[in-house]
């Protein structure tokens, strides 16, 4: 992956990550992420096709429990912490027609 990272890629990634970046932040992120990827070049030459990926440290199996109702968080207490709530639900600005 030796091609140097471009502004366009950073803009796309920032959109995927739902982060508004200023033009100055995009410039800086392009440079810093590019430097980072240069450091990561130490793994470019490794052929690991025969190695199985390891997603997490320990060999876990499915965790099952009886299908019995357990106590859960208090709805009002949870909604109290929300920026906006109405009728026992989280309230957000319009979603449909936003053009995003």
């Amino acid at each position: 992956m030796s091609d140097r990272l471009t502004n366009d890629v950073v803009v796309k990634v920032a959109h995927l990550a739902r982060l508004d970046l200023t033009p100055a932040e995009i410039e800086r992120a392009t440079e810093q992420l590019g430097d980072m990827l240069d450091h990561f070049a130490d793994i470019d030459a490794l052929d690991l096709s025969a190695v199985a990926p390891m997603n997490q440290p320990l060999p876990f199996v499915n965790v099952m429990r009886d299908d019995v109702v357990q106590p859960c968080l208090d709805r009002d207490e949870v909604l109290d912490a929300a920026p906006d709530a109405q009728d026992g639900r989280f309230r957000v600005p319009p979603i449909i027609g936003s053009g995003a």
Partner: peptide, 23 residues
């Protein structure tokens, strides 16, 4: 993302609200 807890920066639609809040 400004929906369930913490900071929210108001914006006309949800996607803009996410991005502005996180920024």
């Amino acid at each position: 993302d400004g929906v369930r807890y913490g900071l929210r920066v108001d914006a006309p639609d949800t996607h803009a609200m996410y991005s502005a809040t996180r920024a």
